[in-house]
């Protein structure tokens, strides 16, 4: 299966573990990705707050690039929930409002581009994995089932809400990721807050507001004794992972739950090496979870400082 691939800004650096693991599982899944050439930022949740026309033109440039390089109606895949929402929402609103589409195309024309609303169908990577590849095909590829690993499946917001193009899962209580994790052999814990918000950009704007939301999610996962939380969005991963320490400080808790991308867990179950799947980049180390399922965690980079033995240490003369 061929897809156009829109990585977005996060996957290039901050969420490179997501990108690496996506590329690693593509082959066993039988997926071929063609990256959208020279794509730009989708605007995240920020650009729309500044300028509407520019925000739509920004997203439409990506859609236009995807439209140009599509050969026979392949879908566009976005692994980031915010990119997925922006691309699909822009297409839906341009289709719904010809006046807006006309203005956006006038702007695109300044760069010699054009986009026909409705041409590019954007889908999330999870949707493609469970619906196009399918649970059965995934199950056939599992060589090292994640037996015994207790996983809390975390969806976050934008993948299931509001669903502009197609609602592939329930907006309140989604289950596709649960089912995928079970396919991989993991034990899926009950996680009632699975579709709640991670706080998004509030970690920057008003940290206490974000820490409250992150704390609720971590508490919920810890209450159900999850070994790891698995996520499908770079923003959710960053907030729950990098801010876990701050939550512990603010709430006097001792959470130590690794936050892993679903593609990383899928790769492990396919028998791929932890290093190839981008393990080791998480703030909360996944090593204990990896050991639990019998996977060797990637080696920590050696410190360059020479060992004590190599240092010229003063030696006491031996007593006779």
């Amino acid at each position: 299966m061929k897809y156009n691939y829109y990585p977005g800004c996060s996957l290039e650096r901050n969420a490179s573990a997501y990108h690496d693991s996506t590329m690693a599982v593509a082959k066993p899944l039988g997926i071929e990705f063609q990256e959208v050439n020279d794509c730009n930022c989708c605007g995240a949740v920020e650009f729309m707050a500044i300028d509407k026309m520019q925000a739509y033109a920004l997203i439409a440039r990506n859609l236009s690039l995807a439209e140009q390089q599509m050969s026979n109606g392949e879908n566009l895949v976005a692994p980031c929930s915010a990119c997925f929402l922006n691309l699909s929402k822009c297409d839906a609103y341009l289709s719904a409002s010809p006046a807006l589409a006309d203005k956006v195309n006038k702007a695109l024309a300044a760069g010699g581009m054009h986009y026909t609303p409705g041409q590019v169908h954007t889908r999330h990577l999870l949707d493609v994995a469970v619906n196009d590849v399918g649970y059965d095909a995934i199950a056939k590829k599992v060589s090292k089932p994640l037996y015994g690993l207790r996983v809390a499946p975390y969806y976050g917001c934008l993948i299931v809400r509001p669903g502009f193009l197609d609602k592939f899962d329930d907006p309140e209580y989604p289950t596709s990721l649960d089912k995928l994790m079970r396919t991989l052999g993991a034990t899926v814990v009950d996680f009632p807050m699975k579709a709640h918000c991670c706080g998004g950009h509030m970690t920057q704007i008003s940290e206490p507001v974000a820490l409250y939301m992150i704390h609720q999610l971590l508490k919920n996962a810890a209450d159900y004794e999850a070994d790891v939380i698995t996520t499908i969005c770079p923003m959710c991963q960053l907030n729950l992972d990098a801010y876990q320490h701050n939550v512990n400080k603010a709430y006097g808790t001792h959470y130590n739950i690794p936050i892993l991308y679903f593609t990383q867990l899928m790769g492990l179950a396919f028998g791929l090496s932890a290093k190839k799947l981008g393990f080791g980049k998480e703030f909360i180390s996944a090593a204990p979870a990896l050991i639990k399922i019998g996977v060797k965690p990637p080696k920590k980079p050696k410190k360059k400082r020479p060992s004590k033995q190599e240092l010229p240490m003063p030696v006491m003369p031996e007593e006779e």
Binding site: C39, Q54, R61, A107, A109, G111, M113
Partner: peptide, 18 residues
């Protein structure tokens, strides 16, 4: 991005339209 000039032309046109 490689074509940053093209993007800027599109965005300044968008601003002008608005």
């Amino acid at each position: 991005i490689k074509n940053v000039d093209q993007l800027q032309a599109i965005l300044s046109k968008a601003e002008e339209i608005a």
